[in-house]
């Protein structure tokens, strides 16, 4: 569909554009949940509010969109705890940078404003458990559950140069898909080697695990089979290697940690639709779709349990 969009734009050589004011009724403000629990790690939840689409997004409005006046409880089926509030004002600057990478909140916001999240330092994610959160905010209760599924290991992972490229290529994996269960997966990658040249010399290439633009899949078409699949390198930053010709490629010399997570259906469906929306928003030739959240009571966002399997690939020719 995107290609057709390009086609149309090209065809309309005599077209003209103008910016217009869109007068829509002010939408209802909704609670947005972003919460993660991963095997062996503390859970965290960050709350924010949705804002009118055409309102400007400056630092202040981003900061004001975060919600800290909520109470959240988390349960693993046997124990129920009230989550602790942790705020960015109490963090060191390197911690803020790290957090910014994970949550996508601008470092400036974390530095200048006291942004709060919620965690439980007495509980870490365990495989096979279902975690339920209950958020009490301004008199309303929002609930969600997610399961840390059994991890599924990759049989092998490797790097292969693409086409007749000299040193650029993709990461591939071989998966023996378990046939007995219905599985959903999400793929991430992180380069842990440092830049050798240029202005970023000495810095680690990636600070966190990044998902590519279509990072989830399910076993509908591949249940119980063994197959090979590959991914390009995520990244849309302003760094030099995120521009052509290196954009999207791993490179000979990179050391890449692959994080291959088992997820549940709710997480898969949210990420799948969110990724589709990111690709199609604004295209007049795509149908408008809302992303289905796994939170009750009309809240947006996702409470996600991840069950990762890690593997390391050294990219050689």
């Amino acid at each position: 569909m995107r290609t057709l969009y390009i086609v149309i734009v090209l065809l309309t050589f005599v077209s003209c554009e103008k910016e217009i004011d869109v007068d829509l009724p002010r939408p209802e403000e909704k609670l947005v949940v972003e919460g993660v629990i991963e095997t062996g790690a503390f859970p965290y939840v960050v709350l924010s509010k949705s804002s009118p689409y055409f309102d400007p997004t400056d630092i202040e409005s981003v900061a004001n969109s975060y919600v800290s006046n909520a109470t959240i409880t988390i349960s693993d089926g046997t124990t129920t705890n009230t989550m602790t509030k942790l705020c960015s004002g109490g963090l060191t600057q390197p911690q803020r940078v790290q957090l910014s990478g994970v949550l996508g909140i601008p470092v400036g916001v974390l530095t200048s404003y006291n942004i709060c999240g919620f965690t439980d330092l007495t509980m870490t994610g365990e495989v096979g458990k279902t975690y339920t959160i209950s958020i009490d905010w301004e008199g309303e209760i929002y609930e969600s559950s997610t399961t840390i599924e059994q991890p599924v290991p990759l049989d092998s992972t490797w790097f292969k140069v693409f086409g007749d490229r000299d040193s650029l290529g993709f990461i591939y994996a071989y998966l023996n898909e378990p046939g007995a269960t219905q599985n959903y997966y999400r793929w991430y990658a992180k380069r842990i080697n440092s830049y050798k040249y240029g202005s970023l010399k000495g810095q680690t290439k990636d600070n966190q695990f990044n998902p590519p633009s279509s990072s989830v899949f399910d076993d509908e078409f591949v249940n119980g089979t063994s197959f090979e699949f590959g991914y390009n390198r995520p990244g849309g930053s302003e760094k030099a290697d995120d521009q052509a010709p290196e954009r999207g490629f791993f490179k000979v010399g990179d050391t890449v940690v692959v994080k291959f997570c088992s997820i549940d259906k709710g997480v898969h469906d949210f990420v799948d639709k969110a990724e589709e929306q990111i690709l199609s928003t604004g295209s007049p030739f795509a149908a408008p779709i809302n992303v289905v959240s796994n939170i009750s009571n009309g809240a947006l966002g996702l409470w996600a349990g991840y069950s990762p399997y890690f593997d390391t690939v050294v990219c050689t020719k």
Partner: peptide, 27 residues
Amino acid sequence: ITLPASKYFVEGELLVEYAPRNSYRMA
């Protein structure tokens, strides 16, 4: 036509919630 009504961020990505279907009139 159907236009986005509100925006929100998850994992640093901008996501949108659409206004009711066909609730906006073009000129």
